[in-house]
Nucleic acid binder design. Structure first.
Lengths: 382, 382
DNA sequence: CCCACTTTTTTCTCAGTAGGAAGAAACTGT
DNA sequence: ACAGTTTCTTCCTACTGAGAAAAAAGTGGG
């Protein structure tokens, strides 16, 4: 796209798109508002707003909802933004499973399906999306595909631990088949985006989300935009160096996550308290720490290590807000307070640590925000 | 600015600014080009370009330089971009010293002055800038002020080590006095910006610059834009945790820089090789390591620590390129190769390590790029 | 030296538009 | 019932984006 000859930055086509997007974004944010409100929020003159609103009503984006609150003067005609005018497909690839949800721009799920797949992934994704969206295809604005590895330019280069082939441009193939924009990204990045637009981070423009599961990864949002880095590997914090670790080459599993991920915590828990492997080892460890001194000491080690990981990240990017996700979201208030204290003692910038709140819904909301941003990609101004 | 009522995103004023900026940016980049080139680079139609060029010639931005290379057809009239049409003041505050340079947009210095100051900083800065710019005041596009601490929104919150007062909105005061945009930032951030536009990082959009001096700090550029973080503390990598460090509260000096900055290296060098404190301790250490086993071992420790610092940063943001500045730029090829190898063994993403090339000029070029970006601040589109 | 051809630059032209102003509509309050 | 206020719509026009045409300035061949 960027290697095409540039079109005029002030063309009538572009001007029209800018006005439409201004109104759509204002309406999407406010949900219920009048033409006067739209004029104030966008800076467009009243005559222009009238014409745009007429158009968007005809297209189903806006619905007239009757008079506003009684005041002096002509009552406002309230307009409701219709999230069903913009549908998004959120696809999650966790080989051998694929799941797909169709949601409106508010996150309400309209249809979903989960299945195993082993054939052609592009074919499967397209079939799922088309089946689920059905007659609403004209309202489909974009597709977001979550993968558990590193993606660069829509080609997936997955972590060896989940064993999909490398250099696989599924995004472009799906986009050609479906005719809408398709974005592919790491699922932790999508979680960060989701929490930023609709979760624990909805009130900030910068945040770091740390997700602890079998691995440890992070999603970084700066100025409301997910940052992936030069090779799509931003947030691979599981590879943080641990001083005492033995030197070894790249193996797909990072030093830090080898010692402090859910797998490592589970191993240690079973050693401390022989029995069945717990479903939620972090929660289990916290409970055990109340009565067992060795468990208490180990919990302190874990919290100290996670606090140092957070501190390392804060030193680099100063996000102001850190969200803990996955197993790390299971920490109780005391543990959270402990991490906050460890951090406060050494951090160069005030940093608030919160639990992520969306859980399984984070990826969906992230996918929605991605797909809607991709749907009208206004080229950058000079 | 962002709390003002928005103006129309498609107004004629805005349209005019966009066209002018498109042409100025294209000309600035190309330096010598024709109207046909301008039309191709900006997407503007030929008629529009003709009118804009006439205007910019009248204002001194462009100079007609005669026919281009002979080809079939009417010869092109070559236009040269005039960097003197855009002057920038780069101010460096290192209490008790202040220095000021006036440069054109290519970095050519027109005037400079250094002095001690102790009175009112705003008054001193304004006096310096006005004196140095003289009759060229109409060409002054902006002022950039470099400080050795953390700045947020033009207010300087300096590191305790250099002892200036906190919460000091010099940027706004200078802007009101001079009537041009003023930006204030940490000098390491300005170095990163400078290397990105005119130095070792001129061919990339993302980079991390690590500066080793009495402290250790970093500047981060993502998508061509310096990132400061939520509190302006991004890049405070001197505060990276070191596993073996004793716990202590925030003291203005970070764990990592306490052990691996120039001061620390100097102390260790004097212990290894009693004598005068060297001017360039890193260079000295490298020379000593060729003949002294303890020095060799210490050099390996330093390089390992710096490599781990770089690895920590790469895990978080994946810049693709790391520039070493200050004392770290003094590493020889062998040492650089050693860091590159240590990194390659553990990094999740390919990362190239280079020396910064601009040295003392980096802050100036950073200031130029800041001031020119601030000079025409097109508000973001929706 | 003249002419055909090519390419660049400038001028001409006009359908479309941004947005101010005026008018219509729909209320409240007296 | 009417004045006043506020919102929404229509009217109007100076301006503009950009395609097309014309003018300009070369080269190359005969």
């Amino acid at each position: 796209m960027s290697d095409r000859a540039p079109t005029s930055p002030v063309s009538r086509e572009r001007s029209r798109e800018i006005k439409r997007l201004s109104v759509i974004l204002a309406a999407r944010q406010a949900r219920l508002l009048s033409r006067v409100d739209l004029a104030e929020m966008t800076g467009l003159p009243a005559a222009t707003v009238t014409a745009l609103v007429r158009e968007l009503i005809a297209e189903g984006y806006l619905i007239e909802r009757g008079p506003g609150a009684p005041t002096t003067g002509r009552p406002r005609e309230m307009l409701e933004f219709n999230p069903r005018a913009e549908l998004v497909a959120a696809v999650s690839l966790e080989p051998p499973r694929i799941s797909c949800e169709i949601a409106d721009s508010e996150g309400a799920i309209i249809a979903h399906r989960t299945a195993r797949f082993g054939g052609d992934v592009v074919e499967t994704v397209c079939t799922f999306v088309l089946d689920l969206v059905g007659d609403n295809l004209p309202s489909l604005r974009g597709v977001a595909i979550a993968v558990p590895g590193v993606s660069t330019n829509g080609a997936v280069r997955l972590a060896p631990s989940v064993g999909l082939v490398e250099a696989w441009p599924i995004g472009e193939s799906v986009q050609q088949r479906l005719g809408v924009p398709v974005v592919v990204d790491n699922d932790v990045n999508l979680m960060a985006a989701g929490e930023c637009v609709a979760g624990a981070g909805a009130d900030v423009a910068n945040l770091l989300l740390i997700h602890v599961a079998d691995g440890i990864g992070a999603g970084l949002v700066l100025d409301g935009k997910v940052r992936r880095g030069a090779s799509g590997a931003a947030g691979e914090v599981g590879f943080m160096p641990v001083d005492a670790a033995p030197a070894r080459s790249y193996s797909g599993v990072g030093e830090f996550e080898a010692r402090w991920s859910v797998n490592a915590i589970t191993e240690r828990l079973v050693a401390l308290h022989p029995g069945r492997r717990p479903e939620s080892p972090v929660r289990e460890l916290i409970q055990l720490a109340a009565t067992s001194k060795p468990a208490r000491e180990y919990l302190d080690e874990v919290l100290d290590a996670w606090a140092r990981l957070i501190l390392s990240c804060v030193c680099v990017i100063d996000p102001g807000m850190v969200l803990l996700s996955g197993a790390a979201a299971e920490l109780d208030d005391a543990a959270l307070e402990q991490i906050q204290s460890l951090l406060a003692a050494k951090t160069p910038a005030p940093t608030e640590v919160r639990r992520a709140t969306l859980g399984d819904q984070a990826v969906l909301h992230g996918a929605i925000s991605y797909a809607l941003s991709a749907a009208v990609p206004l080229p950058s101004l000079p």
